[in-house]
Write a protein that binds this DNA or RNA. Structure first.
Lengths: 251, 251
DNA sequence: CATATATTCCGTACGGCGTACGATGTCGTT
DNA sequence: AACGACATCGTACGCCGTACGGAATATATG
């Protein structure tokens, strides 16, 4: 059996069974792990996860680059800590009485968090996510679908569906923002600049539906898409489907 | 007004209005742009987008590293070409008569493509995606919801909802695969290795719902999650919601 | 108090990355 | 035959994460 993942100790550092009262040898640490993680979150919020470098973070903290590795074993571990810490910043509101509102709130919170910290969208596939705040969040999410007649597995699937959609909607929105930053122009300007070249290069190809729908969307949104309305539309459909499913389960 | 994006010419290179019959001066290119993009897709399929380097790709093609830049302006452009090329590989089947099947097919195709080429999940926020195959795909998707009584905007939103969900489900699946590769252990093994450390570090914290649901899921799946069933469950709910919405629109 | 030991801090260095630049050779055009 | 456009590609620059080892500093032990 493999050894347990050391990052778990760091994730749960504030809930230590042994509060580490025993003073440690050697020099005191100049800053705390929380300081490091908070500063990293600041940098990632400002410039994205890709722009967060160990050297840059160290400089921000007034430390040598390698000193960071006495706080965190690797950059990956740092990101894991960032996720849990940023998830913990949101206070979890009580679940509304109205069923639809309760379900929507799960998705919208995921959406809001990903909008506030877009780098969350770039974090994938790290297993040892099980920090205290991520666990709190999952517990809260399950609370929104408790007592509705679902079995345990369906509760998990329902929550996952809502959270996945909220994340996906945020990703669509951030894709637009990212493109704007990278090209330095808004959707409207990009289309103006590329319309001519596009029609020339697409000569002969016919896209009746895409052309019609794209034009309608462009006029309605002043952009190629409107992720905000996509969130509302999709969430309405999903909640409709979930409510219908709940009604059937309760029958 | 900014200049048009040069990558468009490359994306639509096979539909050139001027087929470039005029022979170009200088040495012939050793390979073709398609060769470069195909090889890049191979490498990304095998080891992920992060492991796709210009040097590695050049070596694979028997070229010097810098030679690639006579085919493609930047690595980013290469990725854009990869997306369109890989999207074009799938033949677009006719839409089934059954409405539910038609909607499901849109989401499942997105899911399948992302599973077959997980690096698609790492490509975000590139605007100049409008290659011929991406356009074909969008046209095809819209065809699945044409003539159902939706206005143009709702057609777009419906298609986006299905595609977003398919992508999100694939992302959940790939997150598991990614974690397995990174840690070198399956979900079950990871939990066995970390269960003891977790319970120790979580001492005092209570997660009644998460504990109950997690245990149920673990026993049912032999893993922390089962993205495949999540796809089926979520898709069923979404299609339910969409069908209800269509019925209302048609009323 | 003196010494040993654990821990922090951090400078240097290595192998990777994307790609800017310029030299060199090869072809079609004149 | 000479020119100019183009492909090829070696070198180099500034980034990145981080392995390693030495110096400084705190506590633990004699």
């Amino acid at each position: 059996m493999p050894d347990p993942d050391p990052v778990l100790k760091l994730l749960w550092r504030h809930h230590a069974t042994s509060p580490d009262v025993a003073p440690r040898r050697g020099p005191k640490q100049k800053v705390s792990v929380d300081d490091v993680v908070d500063a990293a979150i600041d940098l990632a919020d400002a410039d994205g996860l890709a722009a967060l470098s160990m050297r840059g973070l160290a400089q921000r903290l007034g430390l040598g680059a390698m000193t960071l590795y006495t706080y965190v074993a690797t950059r990956n571990d740092l990101v894991v800590l960032m996720v849990d810490q940023v998830v913990g910043r949101r206070v979890l509101p009580p679940h509304p009485d109205d069923l639809r509102e309760r379900l929507e709130q799960v998705a919208r919170m995921q959406y809001d968090d990903c909008r506030a910290h877009p780098w969350l969208l770039d974090v994938t596939g790290l297993r040892a996510w099980l920090g205290p705040h991520v666990a709190d969040r999952y517990e809260w999410q399950l609370g929104a679908v408790e007592g509705l007649g679902l079995d345990d597995i369906e509760m998990d699937q329902t929550v996952t569906l809502l959270a996945t959609f909220g994340t996906g909607a945020a990703r669509a929105e951030e894709a637009v923002r990212h493109a704007e930053r990278e090209t330095g122009m808004t959707d409207a300007v990009w289309w103006e600049a590329n319309h001519e070249a596009l029609t020339e290069v697409m000569a002969g190809r016919e896209y009746p539906l895409a052309g019609r729908v794209g034009t309608a969307a462009g006029e309605a949104y002043q952009a190629a898409s409107d992720p905000r309305r996509e969130l509302d539309f999709g969430l309405a459909r999903i909640v409709d489907g979930l409510v219908a499913h709940l009604a059937e389960r309760a029958r």
